[in-house]
Design a protein around this nucleic acid. Structure first.
Lengths: 365, 365
DNA sequence: TCCCCGCGTGATACCGGTATCAGGTCGCGT
DNA sequence: ACGCGACCTGATACCGGTATCACGCGGGGA
């Protein structure tokens, strides 16, 4: 319990502890900071004084003096998304194990917020940070570049950034998408909706235009779309721009778009959803259309979760190694902070298709 | 673009900006810090120099000097839980609007982690923090008390702490639980399982023992159990200790317990789940038992989410005002930091029962 | 003409730690 | 008995900001 330090304003400082213990400031500092030598006797006195006063070191002052903060920053697009929540957990676990604190910032998918978040981390002098960036093109990476130029180690997670040659920890998005769409095709589907696409105001008519649009938006979008097209190409199924969703990525929008694809003369018999909210959006569309999954429409989605397994039917989903994604990113960052030379390489982790019951062959037309 | 500052080690400092602009350090500081007076001409020179060097103020140094950090801390039990993710978002939105940064820490339901998190925030000298604490009893609140005694404003969110008279922003847990259980009873159910209970190793045989156990664990647990008992009492339904789950709160454990309740001679016909993972656990148990919801077993759960609406059947759920919970907590905290006297009062927000299709009358036995 | 005042600016003492270094004490060898 | 070195300890200069205060300069009043 902190004693009355004669109306001292804030929390106790090292000088006050020193005074209380009757030793010099430096001795108290050595004891409490755990460096240099102090005789057992004085050490004991200092410790007792610190205990009595309820002393806690001021991390700000310490960082100022040493130049390191033992703190990592994390910038994610949406902490409310279970995917990022898992990644963050992986980061926190491994950084804590190495004695680092973690500051988490969420940008809610807004590039301006991302820039602001980057500045907060720079200003607070974190030792390095991990970012799932919405930036892609040359014009949008200035904030990350600025950090790198200051000598702050940065590693990318989930979303690579083409214009930057930083270490990135990602999954095999293209392969994962291809594998899922192939499973749909193998079941006999040929009209497959692609649900979370580029947020363009209207659908580009050509394959090339679509790909360009997707890649301009988010790295993962482009990759997943490529995987979808890969599978289509391999099976010689013609690409139909009407089967890909464009516009803002909201659950409501996904519902609208799937509803539209369901009303097409040659309607979809399967959907591939690139994110978890796209899955619920699609499911909602099926329900209101009075259609059942998988009888009428098969479905595969990204990001497995425990409710996907208890749905009726249990959903076939792509499981991302969220914890490892975070752990690996933290590990690479911590190594860089520790002095390792950044390699600027792409670390690709494998995802896994969890087959359940939401895919069956299409009904005869 | 930062110029070469002759092999300057770290990021540019205010002294370097001053030198570059050819003015005194104080003048540069006044310009960049936005205080005091500087003539338009010098101001221009300083700004240009800062721009050229890519100057950003060191928030650590600033905080040391001023004693305030313009930063809020948040400690939640599990950032991966959509409930807390929503609360955090509410906090971030309102604190950002008032010019504060937010540091989020997750304890993953571990009291030791909570203590560590508190220390991190104290050491980093946040201006105040919000905590959803796992502490309840007198013996566990020392870390929060310590912060309060240092003069750090603290407000509790979601989970009140009996032993502390701090401001707390919570929902009407007891009423919410009662309302849900009443709905079940109104549909004709009398054997109602209570799924996420106190984590005691074995079930206390008496009502009193159970309540004591629940209250010793988590404030919300006690409240929700009270609401359950309220509804039972009002309907003169005898309390059966076999119908409440005990043990660790994991989805697996919930599945086991519901399976057990389903195997009882006088089996349950309804379950009330106090958290979202308890819902999926219960659903899993129903599925493996070959039972359907709501035909065989009715269900109501806490924490609505978008997948609950697309389940088959759509689930009746209690919706908590997550964003407002966070916003209100941040507002109270910010006011306290701003100088308002803490009132130590309980701010109770209303939850809402969203009726869907998972409740129907029980089948005749 | 002199003085006083106000204004703009820079010098400097903080904040609370860390790290270097000087100086005092003691033991030991010769 | 003296010298030297090892060993502890405390004084002090940082880190990069903020805030106070002193000073130089110019203008206006007496």
């Amino acid at each position: 319990m902190p004693a009355d330090r004669g109306r001292a304003a804030g929390p106790p400082t090292i000088s006050e502890v020193a005074a209380e213990a009757g030793v010099g400031r430096a001795t108290a500092a050595r004891t409490l900071g755990g460096y240099g030598y102090v005789s057992p006797e004085l050490r004991e006195r200092v410790l007792a004084a610190a205990e009595k006063l309820g002393y806690r070191a001021n991390a700000l002052a310490r960082s100022m003096s040493t130049g390191v903060s033992h703190t990592l920053g994390v910038i994610v697009a949406d902490i409310g998304n279970p995917f990022f929540a898992g990644v963050v957990r992986g980061i926190c676990d491994t950084s804590r194990a190495r004695g680092f604190d973690t500051i988490v910032l969420s940008t809610y998918e807004d590039l301006d917020e991302e820039v602001a978040a980057t500045n907060v981390l720079i200003d607070k002098r974190v030792d390095g940070f991990i970012v799932a960036s919405a930036a892609i093109g040359k014009g949008e990476v200035a904030h990350i570049k600025a950090a790198v130029e200051r000598g702050i180690p940065v590693v990318l997670v989930d979303r690579a950034v083409a214009a930057l040659d930083l270490d990135a920890v990602v999954i095999d998005n293209r392969d994962a998408a291809r594998e899922a769409v192939e499973a749909l095709i193998a079941a006999g589907h040929r009209r497959i909706g692609f649900v979370w696409g580029p947020p363009a105001p209207e659908a580009p008519a050509t394959r090339r235009g679509l790909l360009a649009e997707a890649s301009r938006n988010l790295w993962t979008d482009g990759e997943r779309l490529r995987g979808y097209l890969d599978a289509l190409d391999d099976a010689r199924i013609p690409f139909d721009p009407e089967l890909v969703m464009v516009g803002p990525k909201t659950e409501e929008r996904a519902t609208e778009e799937v509803t539209r694809m369901l009303a097409l003369p040659d309607r979809i018999t399967a959907v591939f959803c690139t994110e978890t909210d796209a899955v619920t959006g699609a499911l909602r569309a099926l329900r209101t259309a009075g259609l059942a999954c998988p009888r009428d429409v098969a479905l595969i989605g990204f990001d497995d979760s425990s409710w996907a397994a208890v749905m009726e039917p249990p959903l076939t989903m792509i499981e991302q190694p969220v914890h490892e994604l975070g752990a690996k990113a933290a590990q690479v960052l911590l190594d860089t902070i520790g002095g390792a030379e950044p390699r600027g390489e792409m670390h690709t982790l494998r995802s896994r298709l969890i087959v359940r019951s939401s895919v069956t062959p299409p009904m005869a037309p």
